[in-house]
Computed example of a mutant assay.
Amino acid sequence: MRQQVLVLYLATSALDSEVVGWSRYDGTGSTKPTTGDDDEPPYGSGVAALEDGWRLFQASQLIPPQSGHEYDTSFLKHEFFFEKLHEVS
């Protein structure tokens, strides 16, 4: 079994919100390079990825901003990790 990993950054913490960033990693060896560099997101939302058979295995912890830092620019905080397992012959 080989693993494919999809990381989606969503607009909010809800899985049905819009995808604003993404990365793909293909451990099956069937694509080169192993990371995705598409101009368009592979899915419109996290729910769409689930509907296509991706399994959600991690979501980022929701941490409220410190008082006075509500509008600071930082990392994309609504990060979700998905996986698909593939048999490789």
Rank of each mutant, 00 (worst) to 15 (best):
Q3V: 14
Q4Y: 00
Q4F: 01
V5K: 08
L6A: 10
L6Y: 10
V7I: 15
Y9T: 04
L10T: 10
L10H: 06
A11R: 12
A11N: 11
A11T: 00
T12S: 15
A14G: 06
A14H: 06
L15D: 11
L15V: 04
S17G: 07
E18W: 00
E18N: 10
E18P: 09
E18L: 09
E18I: 02
V19K: 09
V19M: 09
V19T: 14
V19L: 11
V20L: 10
V20C: 03
V20N: 04
W22L: 03
S23N: 14
R24W: 03
Y25H: 13
D26F: 04
G27I: 00
G27H: 02
T28N: 05
G29F: 07
G29E: 03
G29R: 01
G29Q: 04
S30D: 11
S30Y: 13
S30T: 13
S30P: 01
K32R: 06
P33D: 03
P33H: 08
P33M: 05
T34M: 06
T34E: 07
T35A: 08
D37M: 02
D38S: 14
D38V: 01
D39S: 13
D39R: 10
E40M: 06
P42H: 05
P42W: 09
P42R: 01
Y43D: 07
G44Q: 11
G46M: 06
G46I: 04
A48H: 11
A48F: 05
A49S: 04
D52K: 05
W54M: 02
R55S: 09
Q58G: 12
A59V: 15
S60W: 00
S60R: 02
S60C: 02
Q61Y: 03
L62W: 06
P64F: 01
P64I: 00
Q66E: 14
S67M: 05
G68H: 00
G68W: 04
G68L: 02
H69D: 04
H69E: 12
E70M: 02
E70R: 10
D72I: 01
D72S: 10
D72A: 07
S74T: 15
S74R: 11
F75N: 14
L76T: 02
L76I: 07
L76A: 15
H78L: 03
H78W: 13
E79N: 09
F80G: 03
F80W: 09
F81R: 12
F82P: 07
F82N: 09
F82M: 10
F82W: 10
E83V: 14
E83R: 08
K84Q: 15
K84T: 09
K84S: 09
L85C: 06
L85M: 12
L85A: 12
L85H: 14
H86F: 06
H86S: 14
E87T: 07
V88A: 13
V88M: 08
S89A: 13
S89G: 15
